[in-house]
Design a protein around this nucleic acid. Structure first.
Lengths: 226, 226
DNA sequence: CAACTCTTTAAAGAATCTGTAAAAAAGAAT
DNA sequence: ATTCTTTTTTACAGATTCTTTAAAGAGTTG
């Protein structure tokens, strides 16, 4: 399920949000201030962020801006009453939706779901590639017999990305931007090497799925069975 | 490419927007009022809408609301100066972005692209030639059974070009200019060789489509069935 | 710190694609 | 029927792109 970052300095508000979201099967990460939230998002992927505007250290708007630079994720702002002016500001910064405190938690859940849908984010963190599965939460490969194995991070991310959109072409550019980050300076051939290792590692599953080279363009993952 | 609905009662604004968008390869549908726009969107699929707020009949906000109910499409609002209040209203209705007139067309294009990316929309340009299809995004041939195959780039481009305007004559000159670039120095016969390769590759689909030689002039692609 | 794994780089080796040139075939024209 | 023009076919060499390998660098762990 989707991982949601909840940033608010009031613990009871976070608790309230968490309760409702967890109930819907979402994974919730709580942070009390923008700084902690940013530090987390820099290392871990987050599918959606719910951010309170008024916060110590890094405030909601700045966090929003920073997150936007990290990744194209949907952001839901929470404002206190009487901050109308802030709405416009948020609008400009590219917030996707907002709620005014006090809000109905049910509406929060609805909006979260709508945003995930709008961003075409597939909530499940489990991907099935023929007889194996990839679990994004643990970065593990799960075999049919239930065996779980950890594989190198980059390899996992690459396979996971390709597997998230089977049959779709990914250019090396695109993969590097998505996995290594847009500021990556290195060689494009790095992708090739990881692809090679994945092919090697999963050679025995050739009849389940295969990474296909599209000459001059990139790679594509084909799945042959469920 | 993505199809964009432009709704504005001022013809010259529509014209301006159209010029820039078409230049980027988008397909543009112009409508002068909300009613016409809605009627269109109800029957034809649209990837993104650019809507002016002030319009006769059905105004921008109402159109926005109606479109939202039709389909989850990104909407870019265009406001005239001094309608600050409207921004908040639009925000609530779930507009995705906005621009204030007069705007820089280049920025419009940037925002359109950002929205399409955010919504994960990349309207692929598919061409159908009898029982096979060509996907420009991936440079691949898609067979009826769903099999996707990569063919050499130049061959693909040639077939794609011919297939984009079936039955229309293309001189070698024209093809070279379009595919190889106007600065291409090489021999015209190169086209012939690629045509030969295409004919060979798709020999089994002769009853679907065929590349016909027009002696002394060039080539033409005929399609025999849908 | 030494051993380990993971990641990246660099470069050689493979595979594939592309353009050329020339021979063969086909189509017009005389 | 012969000649001329244009297209098709063939084969190959050069160019481009991908794969593989090996080794260095970075980061971790005992």
């Amino acid at each position: 399920m989707a991982k949601i970052l909840v940033v608010d300095d009031e613990a009871h508000i976070r608790e309230l949000i968490r309760l409702y979201l967890v109930d819907e099967g979402f994974e919730v990460i709580e942070k009390a201030n923008g700084e902690d939230a940013l530090a987390y998002a820099e290392n871990q992927s987050v599918d959606l962020a719910i951010i309170d505007i008024m916060m110590p250290k890094l405030d909601g708007w700045d966090l929003c801006k920073e997150l936007r630079e990290l990744d194209e994720m949907p952001i839901l702002m929470v404002t206190s009453k009487g901050e109308a002016q802030d709405k416009i500001k948020g609008f400009k910064l590219g917030t996707d939706d907002y709620l005014v405190k006090p809000f109905d938690p049910v509406e929060l859940v609805l909006r979260v779901k709508a945003l995930l849908k709008r961003y075409r984010i597939d909530a499940s963190s489990l991907i099935k590639l023929g007889s194996i599965m990839l679990d994004r939460r643990t970065y593990q490969v799960i075999y049919k017999d239930g065996n779980q194995v950890t594989i190198p991070m980059k390899e996992f991310e690459l396979l996971y990305k390709l597997g998230s959109y089977t049959n779709q072409l990914f250019t090396r550019d695109h993969l590097i931007e998505q996995i290594w980050g847009m500021d990556y300076e290195g060689d494009e051939r790095t992708v090739d090497v990881h692809i090679k290792r994945l092919r090697e590692r999963f050679a025995e599953f050739e009849s389940d799925f295969k990474i296909v080279t599209i000459r001059g363009l990139g790679y594509r993952l084909e799945v042959y069975r469920d």
